[in-house]
Each structure stands twice: as C-alpha cells, then as structure tokens.
Simulated scan of single mutants.
Amino acid sequence: MNRIGVFGANGRMGLALLEAVTNNKNSQLTGAYVRASSPLLGMAVKQLNSAVAEELTFSDEAEINNIDILIDFTLPAGMRAHLKTAVAHKIPMVIGSTGLNKDDMHALQQAATQIPIVFARNYSVGVNVLLNLVQTAATKLGEDVDIEIFEAHHRHKIDAPSGTALAIGEAIADAKGWQHDNVARFQRHQDEQAKSQNEIGYSVLRGGDIVGEHTAYFATSGERLELTHKASSRMTFALGAIRAAGWLKNKPAGLYDMQDVLDLK
C-alpha cells in the first residue's frame, strides 16, 4: 500500500488527484498539502471532495510525514519549493508541473541524483502512445512534409504552448534528428516567406472549460495525416499519475518519464 501525499491539494488538478488516490486500492491518501498562508489549513478535505476520508485535513506543505510518494502538479514556483522538501525527506516524487524553464529542469535533474522522480508533461496513457505514433509518422513520411502542432485548453491555463504540445514537438524533432529549440516556430505574423519544411509550427487556443486537445499535423502534397488526442476529464491525468506513483516505489534515484512507466521505450 503506497502512502501518498498531494501538493496543491485544493487546485483543480489537486482535487482530482485526491479522488484518484482515494479510489485506488493500492494507495492510501495520507497528505493533502496547501500553502502555509491558505485559509484551508486544518479544514476537513471532505468539505471540498466528498470522496476523501472524513478524518483527513488540509495541512502545511512543509509538514511532511507518513508519506511514501509525493505528487506535485503545481506551478513552477511551487514545484521548486516542493522538490527541496522531497529531497530533504528522501521521498520519491511524481511531477506533472508544466511551464518549467531550463533552471527548473536543471533542479529536477539534480534532485534526481538523490531521489527517484517521474516527470511528465502529460500523464495520460493515450498521450504517451501518441508520442510514439508521431515519431513513426515523422520518420516514415519522408522529408517532403509540413509539420504543425495545435493545442486547445481552458481559459485558465497559463503556459502556452502546453507542455504536452512541446513534448509532441520534441518527440518529432528527436525522430527527425533535429534540435527542437532550433526548429520550433511559435509565431509567423511578421514572416514574409513560405513555411520551411525543416520546422515545427505551434498554434494555441484558450477558451471555456476545454480539458485538453492536441493534434499533430503531417501535410504533404495530396494528403494530410492528423494524429489527435482529446481529454474529457482531468481524472485521466490523475489516474496516470497514480499509476506512475505505483511504478516509482522502490526505484533507484533517477529521472524517469511516463514512457518508462508504460514500457514504451
């Protein structure tokens, strides 16, 4: 039985994680962490999520105990602080934070020399299968192909393009032997030339309550291949994170991803 603590437990994703842990027969929810300034401290978690056991209350994210695995889907600033806490307590982490910069990734890599960490931009099983499919398409369709990635999310999502869209682009770039940062194009409004076939274009939609949609387009003369994943519930990502937590227990220190968890490499 994995004893699991969730950072950012009062957020939209945090609440989904609390429910997923509670409903998993191999997991026990033993920590629901919020910031020290939160008015929710000491409140019964059940008041926000009826699936959770009566006795569990929201607690300070600095007070970690009785935990085997920590799960963190918070914003980058929160993730950085939580990473230090996990390393100090030698507790493995499952991290789904997006919008991380190079310094954040360096901090992850350094922490992974001391504790095992699963980091993925998307914990959906379907998305991780998609990452394999786009690599196949990128290598089989040849050089005469235009590659574009479109993603759509709810209006509250801050980072753009999404971490998942970037993961799709990085998978394609890796298959093509490109350096992603050199071929990624995020805007063309001032371009006065035709699109290059040695680039990956990104476009973004933000609106309403869209959970997450991603499409990779491979367009050639006379045909177009579209590989699409649509998520209808955050529970999809939460269940993937719980699966990753179960896989991570007792693993040696290192930085892993969902491709490792699903044995897709």
Score class of each variant (00 low, 15 high):
L29A: 06
A219L: 07
V94P: 12
P39L: 02
H180V: 04
A231W: 08
A36Q: 12
V21F: 12
G78N: 02
A81S: 15
E192S: 15
A241C: 00
A194V: 07
H156E: 14
S233H: 14
I4W: 15
G222M: 07
Q187F: 08
A216V: 09
V261L: 02
L239M: 02
A53M: 10
A231H: 13
V6K: 05
G254T: 06
N250P: 09
V45A: 00
L131H: 00
I149K: 09
F150T: 11
N66A: 11
V183D: 00
A160N: 10
L48R: 09
K140H: 11
A120R: 02
Q193N: 10
W178V: 05
G42H: 03
R185G: 00
P252R: 01
D72Q: 06
Y217N: 00
E19N: 14
R234T: 14
K157C: 08
I69P: 13
R185Q: 13
I69F: 09
D72G: 08
N65A: 08
Q193S: 13
R234F: 15
L29M: 04
W247L: 01
Y123R: 03
H189E: 15
S50W: 11
M13W: 06
Q259C: 02
N23L: 15
H153V: 14
L248S: 05
L225D: 04
M79E: 00
I4H: 11
I67C: 10
S38A: 04
I149F: 05
L75S: 12
I71V: 15
S59K: 13
E54Q: 13
A20K: 11
V129C: 14
S38I: 03
L133R: 12
E151M: 09
H156C: 06
S59P: 12
T215Q: 01
P252Y: 00
V125F: 03
Q114K: 10
H189K: 15
I172Y: 03
I71R: 13
V6L: 06
S221K: 15
S232K: 15
A216C: 02
T113R: 06
A77L: 06
N198W: 01
A53Y: 09
T57G: 06
V145A: 05
V127F: 12
I158R: 09
G78V: 04
A167H: 00
H106L: 07
T74P: 07
A44D: 02
H214W: 12
Q47I: 04
A184N: 04
V87C: 05
L15P: 10
G246E: 15
F218E: 03
D209L: 10
E54V: 12
A231K: 14
I71A: 05
N66W: 11
H153F: 10
Q179G: 07
V118R: 08
L225Y: 06
V211M: 08
T220E: 09
